[in-house]
Every structure is written in C-alpha cells, then in structure tokens.
Design a binder for these strands. Structure first.
Length: 492
RNA sequence: CGGGACGUAGCGCAGCCCGGUAGCGUACUAGCAUGGGGUGCUAGGGGUCGCAAGUUCGAAUCUUGUCGUCCCGACCA
C-alpha cells in the first residue's frame, strides 16, 4: 500500500483529508485557507455545475457576471447584511506596490497608492448586484428579473477545511427581483426544490428541506430555506440555501418599480446559492475506508477498463477488443477510460481507481478474451462478476443506474436511522453524545433558548422541516409549550 | 485569537537530547525478469535541513527571533 488512508473510525477528519488529497481532488496551496482544486476535483465540479446550470435555465434564469470588488459604501447599505459579513471580509486598500528601498529585491505597498474608498472583496454579491438592478428596473414590465452568476467569493474564516470551508470558494448565486411577495416566495421555494432534486437525484444524497430559525437566517433575509444533509460521522451539513429577502435590499438600494396602476413600490427579492462545499458533502456522503465512492451521474470517469496481459501479443488482442468496447460505451453516453499505462500494474490500478471512486471497473485479460467475457467490479459493493461481451453496454448502463440508486438508498437508510426523537433534556444530551445525527425535539421558539442549547451542547437548530407535523409538546430546555418539533444537530 | 503538533529529496519520515562527511522508505531514471489486487532484483540521479541573526574552529542539531502549515477549540450564510 503506497497510499494509506486513515479509517473513518480511527480519525474521521484525517480520513476526509486523505480522500481529498490522495484521491486527487484538491491540494493545499501557498495561500493560507485556500486550496487548489485539481483536475479530477474540478471535473467533478464541472459536472455538478453543468447539471445545475441546465436546471436554472430550465426554470427561466440567465447567467451574468458582476465585479469581484464592492465599494465599501455600497456594501454597508443593507445594514444587517453588512454587519453579518463584516467580520470576515478581505478589503483592498491600495492599488500599487513599489520596490522597497530598505530591503533589496522586495516589494512594499506604495503608501501613495491608498484608495480613496476601500473595496470589499465580495463575500456575497447582493450589494453590487442590487446597486446595478436599480438601473435596470423601472416598471413591472422589467420583472421578474431572474439572474444567476457563477463566481468565486472570499470569506476570511478563522478555521478552514478543504471544500467544507475555504477562504475562497466557487459557487453560484441567484439574485431575482419580483413584483409581489408571493411571487418571490414561490421563487425561493422553487429554487429550494431545484437544490433538493439535484442533491437527491444526482448526488444521491438525501436532504431535509426546511426553514431556518431567525438566529440562523442569512444576514438581511426575511426567511432562509435550506437543505440539510447528514454526514457519516453524524454531523449535519447545510448543503444549500434559498433566501426570501423581502424588500430589504430593494429599500437599501432604492429599487422601485411602477405597477400597472402606475403606483411605485419596492421590488421583492430572493437569493440562493450552492458552492464547492457540495463536493465535501459528496465525499462524506458515500465514501468508505478504501476511498471515494462517487455517484455515476456525477463521476468524471464512470467506467475504467484495465487490461491484464503478458507480452505484446496479448496486449494487442486486448487493445483491439477494448477499442470496440470503448466506442460502443461512448456511443451510449458512458464516460469511459481505458487505462493501458504500461508503467502501472493491474493491482496498482485497481487500488487507484477505487481510491478515486470510479463506479465501475472492467478487467479484461487473455482468459476473458478466450471466454468472450469481462470481469466487472462495482466500487460501492466491491462485488466482482463476469459479464458476457454480448449486451455488455446494456449491462454497464444498467449497473450504473443500479449503483446510483443503491448508494442513495444506503445514504437514505443511514439518515432515517439517525433522526431520533428526544422528549427530555437528558435524553437530548445523551443522544447528542452517543448516537449523534438529527434530533427531533420541541423548542419554545425563542432565540435565547436556542443560544443556550448551543452553548450547552454545541448543537444548533438545523431547520424546521417543511410540512412539519404540528404536535403539542414542551421545550426540552425550558419546558414551555411548543407546537412542533425542530431538528437539532451538531453541524459543519 | 487560545491550546497542541510540525517544517530535513516530489511525498512520508528518521537524525536533534549528547554539535563533527545528510540518511531511510516511497516516487523518479535505466536494464532484466514479472503481470487476474498497490511486483522482484541490480545500478543510478535528486537536498542552500522553512527563513534570519547569534554562540562555536565547526550548526539540521544549541540560543533568539521570524514566517508558514495542519489538528482541536472559539468564530462561521
């Protein structure tokens, strides 16, 4: 074993780091808190991006691009938003360097180049976008305005983790403007559905849709909807958010429109986003102690073919058979790689592609050629089986679908087993320490209680599930009356 | 920002306590054998020991400073 990875049981966060680094998704960089996304990891992101982008366009959105820099005076206009992000903003104060006269060969910030107004590097783009929308919206005829952008943002986090929380990350952010509150709320919910569908159907990761409590709300939002996923260590991960912004940003940036009766009103807004954090979620949702397990619908390589041979003659015969097979598989839309690299031996390749999470591996050698079969190994179950050459493409596409379904079901049943009800404080604390996962419990609805619980247990309210059953009960901390349960968990 | 660990070949590490020719594994290069689960043997190439100053005849090793990284916490839409 040349690439050892930690086991989940022995060191979960080391296991996670090992998968990312040794699986070739990303690398540490020269910049504190920032990572390099390597080709294999970026291919995964491109696949996610392509699917989401199509879903956004199918729901009527268009892409655009806004600047990385936000003048401080714009950034501070929506007070809650500005306050919420103030502590984690990188700020540009100068625009020039010069040679340092005191130290040969080094540069210094030229004090003469101080900017008149500082530029905030966007931690999110509401400010720059709404200052722009002001000029684009005059009439109800300009609405709805449905725009998305694919971009990078910077949040100067104290502690970073590969993909889950980096100082710079890639994401998409949708920013829409509507004539009525109802329409904006419908948009917010629609995009939450898009995210949930993406998570479940493509990432094979079950999520709980819900709404955040006021404490956990996006700074400047009226309501924050979210999808929450459960990781294998029992911690929750916020996988996507969709915000109903009310008229907060319209008022802050003075974006008004004339309705049909020629009355002026502020527009109603939404914003929604998912980020490269989803890659972290994907890694933790399905992978095992041998490496990544990727869902076929997003895997950069769906099938890898490994030849097993002695001598050039056998290799040649295999090459011929494989080239037919590759052609057929590609024709069926399968992303296939033939790894005939002479420098690595079969066993090495087997381990390598398992580490990289390739859903299916086809092994083909002289023995198989003689019998007109191949050996197919599933990454998720480690099952190996011989398949006849005839109809192989069909078998492969069936298997890929089967894997997609099967890893979803596995993750779903894990999630179901880890949503537990707690009715007393002792039960709640015990569950958090021993079983972890989501805990469904009554809460008195106050921010103070929520803070207190967080302080005592590090658990936060992940969400109030949509379509939550109404049920009389008493708050686990204060014993006050409550009309529904909410989901608590320790979270990333 | 607090606590901990660390910085020596691409990667993973030993050497440091007790100063004296910079080493191991892996990767890399070449050759032969091998090839159905991370090959074996042989021969090679590669390092201003994070950076700076100090002590010393002599510093990877001792002293001081400094920079950076990771982990745990605090913080975090």
């Amino acid at each position: 074993m040349s690439k050892e990875i930690a086991s989940r049981k022995e060191d979960y966060s080391q296991w996670y780091n090992d998968l990312i680094i040794k699986g070739g998704l990303a690398d540490y960089s020269a910049v504190r808190g920032c990572m390099v996304i390597k080709p294999y990891g970026f291919a995964l992101w491109e696949n996610m991006r392509d699917v989401l982008d199509k879903m956004f366009k199918d729901t009527g959105h268009q892409n655009a691009y806004f600047p990385l820099f936000v003048p401080k005076s714009l950034f501070e206009k929506e007070e809650q938003n500005a306050e919420g992000f103030a502590k984690e903003c990188a700020v540009v104060t100068h625009y020039r360097l010069k040679l340092n006269p005191e130290k040969k060969g080094s540069l210094m910030v030229d004090p003469e180049s101080k900017l008149e107004e500082e530029l905030v590097i966007r931690p999110t783009s509401e400010a720059i976008i709404w200052s722009t929308y002001k000029g684009w919206i005059q009439s109800y005829r300009d609405l709805p305005l449905l725009i998305n952008q694919w971009a990078n943002v910077v949040r100067w986090e104290m502690r970073t983790r590969l993909f889950l929380r980096t100082a710079e990350f890639l994401w998409q952010e949708g920013h829409t403007a509507h004539a009525t509150a109802a329409e904006a709320i419908a948009e917010t919910k629609q995009m939450l559905e898009v995210y949930a569908t993406f998570a479940e159907e493509f990432m094979a990761m079950p999520v709980i849709k819900g709404v955040k409590t006021p404490n956990e709300r996006f700074a400047g939002a009226v309501d924050t909807y979210c999808i929450e996923a459960l990781m294998q260590d029992g911690k929750a991960l916020q996988a996507g958010t969709s915000h109903f912004l009310g008229q907060n940003f319209a008022k802050a940036f003075d974006v008004k429109f004339s309705d049909k009766e020629n009355k002026l009103d502020y527009v109603w807004a939404t914003s929604w986003g998912v980020s490269t954090r989803l890659i972290g979620a994907l890694v933790m949702a399905h992978s095992d102690d041998d490496g990544l397990v990727l869902p076929p619908k997003l895997a950069p390589i769906q099938v890898v073919i490994v030849p097993i041979y002695k001598g050039d003659e056998q290799k040649k015969a295999i090459d011929e058979k494989v080239s037919e097979l590759v052609k057929e598989l590609k024709g069926a839309g399968v992303k296939v790689k033939y790894d005939d690299n002479e420098n690595a031996r079969p066993g090495w390749k087997f381990a390598e592609y398992e580490l990289k999470g390739v859903p299916l591996r086809i092994g083909i050698g002289a023995r198989d050629l003689a019998n007109n079969v191949v050996e197919v190994a599933r990454r998720d179950t480690k099952e190996k089986k011989s398949y006849p050459m005839e109809g192989l493409t069909q078998s492969i596409t069936d298997l890929l679908n089967e894997i997609q379904k099967s890893i979803y079901e596995k993750a779903y049943s894990f999630r179901e087993q880890n949503v537990t009800k707690a009715d007393t404080w002792d039960e709640f604390v015990q569950l958090l320490d021993e079983k972890t996962g989501f805990i469904s419990a009554h809460w008195d609805g106050t921010g103070e209680t929520e803070d207190k619980i967080k302080e005592l247990t590090k658990a936060t309210i992940r969400c109030i599930p949509l379509d939550n059953p109404q049920e009389e009960g008493r708050c686990i901390l204060t014993g006050k009356l409550s009309k529904e349960r909410v989901l608590f968990a320790r979270a990333y």
